[in-house]
């Protein structure tokens, strides 16, 4: 077998194992939390008998291992159970919410990743001169300010003062893509500002590191322009660390958008999770946890695989 295939297979196997471990942690974590779902559901009307009945009905009296295996088996078949609070199928509502979050994350990524890499290349090209300092300064400032504050500031100027975009990012199926895009313009802008700095700075550092190499000197002595030296010789060797940080930020776009979704009242995963944590709806929290973990592990696995494929020594062994 080609060594690269072997390495990639290893990565995939490891990620699967990791996801399994994460599912255990999620289950254990939600199980040992104080409070009782049955109590929560019945509230004031709880009597000892009705509590016991409901517990039995929900399977809360079974041993933890049995409950875990049942949960995992169902989850693998796409059945995430029903929400305790409203009795709706979790997979269905989650799917819709996840779709919305992905929609938001996708557009934020489409704008921020190329922009971050381009700004990183630009910063290297003008290293230690004013364009570099300006890019570094602005992106650092935007990552330092809390995202909800950026959100409200953008909302004030672009929604309230200028009226370019709605302040509330509500979307539904009846809207056209263009209407949806207009609706999410502001949250996409905030997310872009938040993830830009990290990716841009990593791109800059990774390329600068490669720029110390002797083969960059060779390229310069071939009479290439600075930008072609960076693009043709430095960038291909800096791909691995850049992809890593890009994936980390993509994961953040899916997993970490809770605050932005709440600020802009966006019907995504984050809000769904926050609502149901407040209601102690354990099956929903578990399902959200599992989806977040899968996204996070999956994206990092892709980053690892890209790093492996980007290494010519592994791709073309002697």
């Amino acid at each position: 077998m080609h060594p690269v295939l072997k390495l990639v297979a290893q990565r995939i196997a490891l990620s699967t194992l990791l996801l399994l471990a994460a599912s255990v942690l999620i289950f254990v974590g939600t199980t040992i939390l104080p409070g009782d779902v049955a109590q929560q559901i019945l509230g004031q009307s709880a009597t000892p008998e009705s509590l016991a009945n409901l517990r039995a009905e929900l399977g809360l009296n079974d041993p933890a291992v049995t409950r875990y295996l049942a949960w995992l088996g169902a989850a693998l078949q796409g059945d995430l159970g029903t929400a305790l609070t409203n009795g709706r199928d979790i997979a269905e509502s989650l799917g819709q919410r996840l779709g919305n979050t992905m929609f938001l994350a996708f557009w934020a990524a489409v704008i921020s990743v190329p922009l971050a890499i381009f700004l990183g290349l630009l910063a290297v090209r003008f290293r230690d001169r004013w364009p570099d300092k300006l890019i570094s300064g602005v992106t650092l400032a935007s990552i330092s300010i809390p995202e909800f504050l950026i959100g409200y500031v953008l909302m004030y100027f672009f929604a309230v003062k200028l009226g370019w975009a709605p302040s509330v990012a509500m979307i539904n199926d009846s809207m056209s893509v263009w209407q949806k895009l207009n609706a999410i313009a502001l949250p996409v802008g905030v997310l872009t500002l938040v993830v830009l700095a990290h990716m841009m700075r990593m791109t800059r550092a990774a390329i600068l590191n490669v720029m110390q190499s002797a083969y960059i000197e060779t390229a310069e002595l071939k009479g290439l322009s600075t930008f072609s030296v960076i693009r043709r010789h430095a960038f291909p060797n800096a791909v691995a660390p850049i992809v890593n940080v890009v994936m980390l930020n993509l994961a953040y776009l899916v997993v970490g958008v809770v605050v932005i979704e709440v600020v802009f009242v966006y019907p995504g995963m984050g809000q769904y999770l926050v609502d149901h944590v407040a209601k102690r709806d354990v099956p929903v929290v578990q399902a959200c946890g599992l989806v977040f973990a899968a996204v996070y592990i999956g994206l990092n696995m892709i980053a690892d695989i890209v790093s492996i494929l980007a290494n010519p020594r592994l791709r073309h062994p002697k």
Partner: peptide, 29 residues
């Protein structure tokens, strides 16, 4: 100067191993 570098005057370094870009084929370089 760029037209001169790699055109009229070229350079062979001590360590070819470090002076070749590891990510590109020899012919291309």
């Amino acid at each position: 100067v760029r037209a001169l570098r790699g055109g009229e005057v070229t350079y062979v370094s001590q360590s070819a191993a470090a002076s070749f870009n590891p990510a590109k084929k020899i012919m291309e370089q």
